[in-house]
């Protein structure tokens, strides 16, 4: 049974700080896990280290998602953040890697060759945020139709869309006879 062991957090922090060095933008303690902030280009190395380092063993993929910080009140290093959550069955703790991606060049190395579960979650982030994952085998839209234009979860996309949902051919009633003729 995998049980939560909060005492292992210290070992994790020491290992990650020794590995990442000044690439680490910051670290934050959350209620039951630690979040490590890096630049997008460094995220893959850190995730690979977390998985492959024998004393850590973060082999359990939990989640991958993104956040658009365009209108966030606190200044952030870049507009987008790709957040990967992992679990270590060995240490019994979680770790989160938050990788910042620039607005002008939204590209980040793909994690698909490290975790199979990253495949669909990265496609989802591409679909909804327009962040490109370099090296992804099949980076296509997953939730929206293939011919959809735009990335709806970005902050500058309106909630009610840009009129796509009203643009379907209707079953015409043009040949219906007017009331007085019928």
């Amino acid at each position: 049974m995998i049980l939560y062991q909060p005492e292992n957090h210290l070992a994790l922090i020491a290992k990650v700080e020794a590995f990442a060095g000044d690439k680490l933008l910051g670290r934050e303690e959350k209620s039951h896990y630690h979040q490590f902030r890096v630049r997008g280009a460094d995220a893959k190395d850190l995730v690979r280290f977390l998985r492959d380092e024998p004393s850590l063993g973060f082999t359990y993929f939990i989640d991958l998602t993104a956040v658009d910080y365009q209108t966030y009140p606190q200044p952030q290093p870049e507009r987008f953040a790709v957040v990967t959550t992992l679990l270590s069955p060995k240490l019994g703790i979680r770790a989160q890697v938050k990788a910042f991606v620039a607005e002008g060049d939204p590209r980040i190395p793909s994690l698909t060759d490290i975790f199979a579960g990253a495949n669909w979650t990265e496609r989802e982030v591409w679909d909804l945020y327009g962040i490109e994952f370099l090296g992804h085998p099949d980076l296509t839209r997953i939730l929206m139709p293939d011919d959809f234009d735009g990335h709806p979860l970005r902050k500058d996309y309106p909630l009610k869309g840009r009129g796509e949902r009203g643009n379907f051919p209707v079953f015409h009633a043009t040949t219906r006879k007017p009331a007085e003729e019928a």
Binding site: T59, Y60, F61, I62, D63, P89, F115, A116, G117
Partner: peptide
């Protein structure tokens, strides 16, 4: 291994 890599729960 598949469970861990795919993140099944």
């Amino acid at each position: 291994e598949q469970v861990l890599s795919f993140g099944l729960t």
